[in-house]
Design a protein around this nucleic acid. Structure first.
Lengths: 153, 153
DNA sequence: TTTATTTCAGAATTAATTTCTGTACAAAGG
DNA sequence: CCTTTGTACAGAAATTAATTCTGAAATAAA
């Protein structure tokens, strides 16, 4: 952050919004030629500011329209118990995100499934089989108002 | 989903994980030449299966290390009240995600800030100024266990 | 002022994407 | 059974983009 000037930030902003822009086009926006923009991007990648480039897909068209946040409380809180839980969580592809949280519950999971039947199946046959889960609370999403992958600066 | 064969799904899977792969390289993985892979990708884009291509950035390096989920209850639930709330939410860049949820609260926000001081500032000077917010509950993230942008299939 | 150092422009090269042409194969209709 | 139509593909050609190289301009340090 300290090593980044305004040009770097503008490059990051653009690539976050749309990474298909050509270097030439991006250079034009910044009133530069391709070389410095190319070198800056490579530096931002090398130094870890840019983690990866990905395609974002349409959930609805790919039959993953249902979002559920599932709060989980563990039975025991021993060191290796948490570690095992984490290992199991990471292996389940329906779980898109998992956070260790402060408050009434230990973890919050964001789960993506096709519909309520799939969610039931997920909870019954996958989540419940994980060791050491005390109780869970499902919060169903009725509407996605905003969903960005962009950091602001 | 119905229009997609196994080759399409493998293409989507790859581009979700890393969109910088060249068409030639991807074609080799699928035992095809560049042409059919190119045409399939263009079709997946055209038909809306692929929404966009983006760069994912490193939160920590860009000084957005703190994640907070903020549950919000509205005072009134009239039609236009919700609409105004949504408009205000979308305008705040700290709010990365916003869901209309079932349960005790009306909305859940995912907020990204630098630290606790920034969060306080955000709540005091930005969130609290939004009309019609009844009460809020902040759930602080202690650790991010998993965070994927990939749909599984 | 002199000397490094950094940042950049422009040309040259290399590699990618995109377009084009024609072949092979499968399904549909006579 | 043969013909027609459509789809999916390979391979070559054309176009455009990424990458490398050289040197000039600007900035900071000595």
């Amino acid at each position: 952050m300290e090593n980044l000037d305004n040009t770097d930030l503008r490059i990051l902003k653009q690539l976050q919004a749309d990474s298909t822009i050509s270097i030439k086009e991006l250079a034009a926006k910044l009133f530069l030629t391709a070389t410095p923009v190319y070198e800056r991007i490579k530096r931002l990648e090398r130094e870890g500011y840019i983690t990866k480039y990905v395609a974002l897909l349409n959930k609805e068209k790919l039959n993953r329209s249902m979002i559920v946040f599932c709060n989980v409380r563990l039975k025991e809180h021993a060191k290796n118990v948490g570690a095992n839980f984490v290992k199991d969580i990471v292996a389940l592809p329906e779980i898109i995100e998992c956070y260790n949280i402060a408050g009434d519950y230990d973890f919050m999971l964001k789960i993506l499934v096709a519909d309520m039947a799939s969610y039931q199946d997920f909870v019954m046959n996958k989540l419940s089989t994980i060791e050491n889960i005390g109780n869970t609370q499902s919060v169903f999403v009725m509407g996605e108002i905003k969903h960005s992958t962009e950091l602001s600066f």
